[in-house]
Design a protein around this nucleic acid. Structure first.
Lengths: 353, 353
DNA sequence: TTGTATGCGTTATCAA
DNA sequence: TTGATAACGCATACAA
């Protein structure tokens, strides 16, 4: 080595030498995993300060420990789309909570379509959380499984013995439907979430149900049809207010075919339907009842309170985090079934006629 | 070692031995960084498959390479709150694009209040992107700077020589205000974003401006006051439609004091003001003009197009990503000033009287 | 309470 | 095209 070498960053060995202690002692000063005499600690800290040492290199530490402290969350599609959904963000919050002790943070990853190797195969993470396991995500699952790291799937059919976090979507949807039926409604229309990756908006036929791939949509639809077997349904292309408004217009525009109640598979869609109703001069709930699903706090709904099924979105994330923590401790992950809670709001009432 | 040891995961050395090649050769097969005879590659791959080797351990690779491929994004507060703002999500999208070549993913981190060491100090990342540098974030900045890693700050006063991504908030706000003045409005009210971490809703006084900490709010207010020096302003507690509606009611309820135009510092606030106006039976823009800021696609605004200043939200993220990439290549980061573009919509018109 | 020794699994360099 | 070898920076088991 010449004396003109680049000013290499100080390592813990440099600090130890400067302080006149062994590297192991210096290491312990930073990790706090053993008792160190106050005087020794001071000397080490002083040496660190003198050398501009900012603490152990996380990369080296994670190799040595076998842990990086990072948990990956795999979302489908663009981040923007994922974060547009309040349920997803609430869940992410729960996840960070559930992982707080354990983790440095959450690594956001998309399940990229084409690439095979992809980032999933080589991200320095300790575990994976897959969200909305469907189609593409299933390919990601293969890659992830191959790495032998803990995996938890939220709301998706993982197959195999992979722990999942699930919701009682069908039962909860049926609860909402029953509430509407008990109010006296017989002529009800449904608005579903996207059926598959194509996300086509349109009438939901038997054929389309048969080829649907999104479990959430299928399950909630099944619950609704349990109560209203013959209700017609239109699939939205996504969970957006404006999308709900479009479908709402399709359903409510013609007085001859207008239902007395609309059940939407998400709160955002329901708000859109309400907006469409208002545009058409219909009052909610006097002229038409509208119910949603999710129980999120919808910004922009004003004083109305949506009748809906409140899903434990934050809990979903927290549960996933806890399972990850368990598996990282060497215990086996357990599939958790969470339940939604019906909430009566001001947007449903007995039909006028 | 006893023969009863735990079935250790295969390493690249095991694969090399199994395949009868040197570890360096096996390594190259996986990294693709040198030419390898097809036959050799086959043998290595076969050995890997036989041993269930899923590719190089990312932790070891990142120690050796000195890179983890991960970039941290530090947000203040709950993720849920951060992602409620469409501007943030758009920016994240741009960031993932700007980082695509470079990075394994984005590590989402909260700037945790109390803890000193915290995850920021020990996350195995290559660089940091701080968003909305204010108050708490400034403490995070210290920690991050100490690590000597590249840092970029988006919309915040970073101090020192840290590269930033900034917006021409004052000039753009003045543009909107000028448009409204040119339409003939003289009696204008302002709705600002939160002034500080307390996020108190209320009249904006000189005292409150003096103690304000949120740069975006201060700058946009300055731009508006440049055109309407005496316009009264009310600060909202956050950028939400419902919050805008509350402030809107405060401003518009009394016909005696009702302004002919309202300038809001965000599109969501503007939409809330419009909703308040509609509630009060006022038509927009006939009875009252409303303008916003941001130029996001507001879900739920319907057919109206908001008059606003369109900020390059995605570009902000992308620019940050590009600066990170530069710095990781060893070049120095450059502060980028981005500009907003005025967009006339359907929500502003000349005053009736 | 402190020090010694070892290996975590790779990849880069260089020589063959 | 392949192989031998040396770091990368740290944390732990164990001995003193």
């Amino acid at each position: 080595m010449s004396s003109h070498e680049t000013p290499r960053r100080a390592t813990i060995a440099d600090v130890a030498r400067e302080a006149g202690v062994a590297t192991s002692t210096a290491s312990v000063v930073f990790s706090g995993k053993a008792k160190v005499a106050a005087a020794t600690r001071e000397r080490v800290l002083a040496a660190a300060a003198a050398l501009g040492y900012a603490g152990p290199d996380p990369r080296a530490a994670s190799l040595r420990r076998g842990r990086s402290g990072i948990v990956a969350v795999v979302l489908e599609g663009h981040l923007r789309a994922a974060f547009l959904d309040p349920v997803t963000t609430a869940m992410m919050d729960g996840l960070t909570d559930g992982l707080a002790e354990l983790s440095a943070g959450i690594l956001l990853m998309r399940d990229e379509p084409g690439e095979d190797g992809s980032a999933l195969a080589s991200a320095p993470v300790d575990a994976f959380v897959l969200i909305g396991c469907s189609g593409r995500t299933r390919a990601s699952l293969e890659i992830v499984r191959g790495r032998g790291l803990p995996v938890v799937v939220i709301e998706g059919d993982a197959g195999g013995d992979i722990p999942r976090i699930t919701l009682d979507n069908a039962a909860a949807a049926a609860d909402v439907a029953r509430h509407v039926r008990d109010l006296g409604h017989r002529d009800v229309a449904l608005v579903t979430l996207a059926l598959d990756a194509e996300r086509e908006r349109g009438l939901v036929t038997q054929e389309r149900i048969a080829t649907a791939t999104v479990d959430v949509t299928i399950d909630r639809l099944a619950g609704m049809r349990e109560v209203f077997p013959d209700a017609s349904a239109i699939s939205a292309s996504g969970s957006l207010i404006d999308e709900g408004a479009i479908v709402g217009r399709m359903l409510l525009a013609d007085p001859a075919t207008r239902p007395t109640a609309v059940l939407a598979q998400s709160d955002l869609l329901a708000v859109g339907v309400i907006r469409a109703a208002e545009e058409l001069g219909l009052r909610v709930p006097e002229d038409v009842s509208v119910a949603g699903f999710d129980g999120i706090a919808v910004d922009g709904l004003g004083p109305q309170l949506l009748t809906t099924s409140v899903q434990p979105a934050v809990e979903k994330g927290r549960a996933a985090g806890e399972q990850v923590a368990r598996m990282l401790r060497g215990e086996s992950g357990i599939t958790q079934h969470l339940t939604c809670r019906f909430r009566q709001g001001t947007t449903t009432a007995p039909p006028a006629r």
